[in-house]
């Protein structure tokens, strides 16, 4: 079990924050081509997959292994270094610790027993026929706007409208409504297929904070099916997938 790597604090922080949006701990796979992880949240409503490629690092040397990581603790620790600081990462296998050094500080963080972390699911292969590409910031802004009206939001694609297709977000509150549509000039319709599913804003807002920083987000949708968000950060060196189960429309 060996790991010696140096990475920009900002890249590592973005990656850990993207994972922390859904889970507080995970099994991190260290391979010779980078890090990867896959986990579902406690309620089994949302899944996050993250891949941080070797090319994201200034230097990277590793042997394949799996470690248990307290993501919340790492996120808190990585709040300290500035954007341009570099973080040295080493694995102290004898003491079962992950060492993070930056700005003259050296943190030794206890690893978690991987047996006590919930098992990783198999990545589901779901048929989600509609596929569009949306600017991350626009998507996050629409989620934030919907939060003012309701705790759930419908996402979908409408191909029947004139001047369409449209990607729409619609939230119904007790007395108020909000509707936002994105036309062909604003988003890219890779597969414009009619679809509509309802989702919890609680989850979307945490995801939105993360993919809002990405230039573009691939959104995969179906009807009464989960939504999948695929996006990159750190110049394409960090790759993420969020999957979120729908709410029941009749609620």
């Amino acid at each position: 079990m060996m790991l010696k790597a140096i990475i920009d604090a900002d890249i590592l922080r973005e990656t850990i924050e993207a994972i922390a949006a859904l889970v507080s701990e995970c099994r991190l796979h260290i391979e010779n081509d980078g890090f990867s992880m896959l986990a579902v949240d406690t309620a089994n409503v949302a899944m996050v997959k993250a891949v941080l490629q070797k090319t994201a690092f200034q230097s990277y040397e590793a042997e394949s292994c799996e470690i248990g990581v307290d993501i919340t603790k790492l996120r808190n620790i990585l709040g300290t270094p500035g954007k341009t600081d570099q973080v040295k990462i080493e694995l102290d296998e004898t003491r079962h610790k992950l060492e993070l050094s930056f700005m003259g500080y050296k943190y030794s963080v206890a690893l978690l027993d991987t047996n006590t972390i919930r098992k990783e699911p198999n990545e589901p292969n779901i048929e989600l026929p509609a596929k569009i590409i949306v600017p991350g910031m626009e998507l996050n802004n629409a989620i934030k706007a919907s939060m003012l009206i309701s705790d759930k939001i419908a996402l979908g694609v409408d191909t029947q409208e004139k001047n369409g297709p449209f990607f729409f977000m619609h939230a119904d509150g007790d007395t108020d409504q909000i509707n936002k549509t994105f036309g062909p000039t604003e988003v890219q319709f890779v597969n414009p297929v009619d679809s509509r599913s309802l989702f919890s804003i609680d989850y979307l807002k945490d995801m939105g904070k993360i993919f809002g920083k990405s230039a573009s987000v691939e959104v995969h949708l179906g009807t009464d099916h989960p939504v999948k968000f695929i996006f990159d950060m750190s110049n394409g060196n960090a790759h993420f997938i969020y999957l979120l189960a729908p709410r029941i429309e009749a609620d």
Binding site: V40, A245, D251
Partner: peptide
Amino acid sequence: GLGLKIGQKTLDSWF
């Protein structure tokens, strides 16, 4: 409080 609101489906059906 454990993350499951009324009407919220889980990913179980798709795994």
